[in-house]
Simulated scan of single mutants.
Amino acid sequence: MTHLPEPVLRHVCTIEAELGPIREMGPGRAGRRRIIPILGGRVTGPALTGRLLTLGADWQTIFADGMAELDTRYAMETDDGALIEIVNYGYRHGPANVMARVAAGEDVPADAYYMRTQARLETGDPRYAWVNRTLFVGVGARFASAVRVNLFALE
C-alpha cells in the first residue's frame, strides 16, 4: 500500500479586514441573518501582501445554538497590482459568555473560541496563478470593528 504524505500548513498571509456596522436582516430559513460590510484592510505575509478593496461582505447566519456561519466574499489588490478574489467560509462558536464578550466588541483571546475557515482564492494574473490551484485554511479572531485571519496553504 502506498504511504500518503501528511498535510503541511504554510503561512501565506494575515488578513486584517476593517468592518462596517452589522446590518441585521432578521430570521431566515436556518437562523438569524446579517450582513457585515468589508470596508478595506491590509494583507501582509510571506506570500501575499496588499490591500483589501472597499467592497465585499460577510453574509452570516447565526444558528439557535449561537454558532455563526461565516460566508465572505471580497478582493485584494497585491502591492504589485494583481487582483485576487477571496471567498472565505467557516464557523465561529464558543461558550456563551465568551461569545457575548466578542459580540460586545471586547478584546477576547482568540484561543477562547473557535473561528476557522476554508478559503478559495482566484486570479487571472499569471504571477499568482498558484492561488488558483491551492487549498487554504484560516484561523481567525473577531474584534470590535475588524477581523484578523491567518491564512495557510495546505500542502
Rank of each mutant, 00 (worst) to 15 (best):
R51I: 09
T44W: 14
E77C: 10
F136L: 02
Q60D: 03
A47H: 15
Y114W: 09
R133Y: 08
A68D: 05
G50N: 07
E24I: 11
I15T: 03
P5N: 15
H93L: 14
E24A: 13
V43Q: 02
V137Q: 09
D111P: 10
F143R: 13
Y128P: 02
P37V: 03
G26F: 01
G81R: 06
G20L: 10
W130F: 02
G56W: 00
A17S: 08
D80A: 04
T44I: 14
G94R: 04
G105M: 05
W130L: 03
A119V: 00
R51N: 09
T78M: 08
R116M: 02
A103L: 13
A141T: 14
S145M: 08
T72K: 03
R142C: 04
T44M: 14
G94Y: 06
L19S: 00
I38P: 07
G94K: 04
R92Q: 03
L19H: 01
L70V: 11
E6M: 15
N132H: 04
I86F: 09
Y128Q: 05
G124F: 12
L83Q: 13
A82H: 02
R42M: 15
R51Q: 10
A17V: 04
V139Y: 13
T49F: 13
G26T: 01
M99G: 05
L70Y: 06
A112N: 08
G26V: 01
R29D: 12
